[in-house]
C-alpha cells in the first residue's frame, strides 16, 4: 500500500488572480498526526479545500487515499472526515435530529462514538444547533466527522473557539483515534502548543510553499538558536547564509539554523575564535523563526 494517504505533486492554485499555492509537494504518511502550520494567507485553507475536492488545482496532481479528489466517489468521501474553519450546521435542527440526519448518509456510522463524545463534551442532544456556543458547535462538527469512521480526518482550525479544558479533551480524542483506528489526522491550527502535544509530523507553509515537512522530533533536534560570544578578534567576518534568522553586533552573533551535529558548531566557533551557547527552541519558537521575515542587524 502507498505509505502516503495524501500526496500532491507540484500543485499550483490561484485565487482571484493571485497565486496562493505554488508547486506544492505535500506528503502525509498513513497513521500520522500531521501538524499543518502557516501564517494567515500562507495557503493552508486553499490546500485543504483542494484535498477534499471543494476546489481543483490549476496545475499539478493530488492523490488522497489513492484517488484524485475531482474523481471522488461517494464511498471515497465516506472515508474522509473534514471539519472546516467555518463549518455551518443547520441552526434550526436539534442535535439529536442532526445526528440522525447525518448518519443516514453513512452505512458504517459509529453511533457509539458519537454517544460517548456527546457525553464527554457535555452537549445536550435536545438543544437546537443555534443554541450551542461556538465552541460546542465545533465539537459537534467534530463528532459528526468522527461518526463516519474516517481513514483521514482533516481539521482546519478545529480548536479556535474552545477553552483550554475543552481543547485538551479534544486533543485526547485525536490521540485516541490514532490509537484505536489508525486514523490519519491533518491538523491545522494556530495554537502551536496543541500541535506540539499531538503531532508527529510538521509541515510549515509560507508564501504558498511548503518550507518544512519532517518529524517534530527532527525539527526540535536540529533547528537551534545559537549565541556566539567572546570573540577574540571581533565578529566582523562571521556570516551564516543558510540561517533562518541572523543578527550581529560587534561582540555577539545570534543565529537560528540547522545544527546537524555539534562538531560542526565547535569548528565554526573555533574558526572565528569565539565561544557559543545553544538555546533549544520549542515548536512555537521554531515556527516564528522560520516564517518571520529575516531581519539583519548591522
Amino acid at each position: 500500500m502507498n505509505p502516503y494517504i495524501i500526496e500532491t505533486n507540484n500543485v499550483t492554485r490561484s485565487m482571484g488572480g493571485t497565486v496562493v499555492v505554488r508547486d506544492l509537494n505535500l506528503r502525509v504518511k498513513r497513521g500520522s498526526i500531521y501538524g499543518f502550520l502557516g501564517r494567515n494567507g500562507a495557503g493552508k485553507t486553499t490546500t485543504i479545500k483542494m484535498l477534499v475536492g471543494l476546489i481543483w488545482p490549476d496545475a499539478g496532481t493530488i492523490r488522497v487515499n489513492g484517488v484524485e479528489p475531482s474523481q471522488f466517489t461517494v464511498e471515497d468521501r465516506w472515508k474522509i472526515g473534514y471539519v472546516s474553519e467555518r463549518q455551518i450546521l443547520n441552526p434550526f435542527m436539534k442535535v439529536e435530529a442532526l445526528l440522525r440526519f447525518t448518519s443516514s448518509f453513512y452505512p458504517e456510522w459509529d453511533a457509539a462514538v458519537c454517544e460517548r463524545l456527546l457525553q464527554r463534551f457535555g452537549i445536550d442532544r435536545s438543544k437546537r444547533v443555534r443554541a450551542l456556543s461556538m465552541g460546542m458547535a465545533r465539537q459537534l462538527a467534530f463528532i459528526l466527522a468522527m461518526g463516519q469512521k474516517p481513514d483521514l480526518l482533516i481539521l482546519d482550525e478545529p480548536a479556535a473557539n474552545l477553552d483550554v479544558v475543552a481543547r485538551r479533551e479534544f486533543l485526547d480524542e485525536i490521540l485516541g483515534m490514532l490509537r484505536e483506528r489508525e486514523t490519519t489526522v491533518l491538523l491545522s491550527s494556530h495554537i502551536l502548543s496543541d500541535i506540539e502535544r499531538v503531532a508527529d509530523e510538521i509541515g510549515i507553509m509560507a508564501q504558498g510553499q511548503l518550507r518544512v515537512s519532517e518529524s517534530l522530533d527532527q525539527l526540535k533536534e536540529t533547528v537551534k538558536k545559537v549565541r556566539f560570544y567572546n570573540f577574540i578578534k571581533g565578529s566582523n567576518g562571521f556570516a551564516l547564509p543558510e540561517a533562518f534568522q541572523f543578527s550581529k553586533t560587534s561582540s555577539e552573533v545570534a543565529a537560528t539554523f540547522r545544527v546537524n551535529d555539534e562538531n560542526s558548531l565547535q569548528k565554526l566557533a573555533a574558526t572565528h575564535g569565539c565561544q557559543y551557547e545553544i538555546i533549544p527552541l520549542n515548536l512555537e519558537d521554531i515556527f516564528v523563526e522560520m516564517v518571520r521575515e529575516p531581519k539583519e542587524a548591522a
Binding site: S32, L171, D172, L175, G176, L178, R179, V198, D200
Partner: peptide, 17 residues
Amino acid sequence: VRELSAELKINLLTVAK
C-alpha cells in the same frame, strides 16, 4: 505502547519509538 500513550496522553508513535 497503547496503554502508556493513553496514560501520558501522547502520540502512540512517540511511545513506540
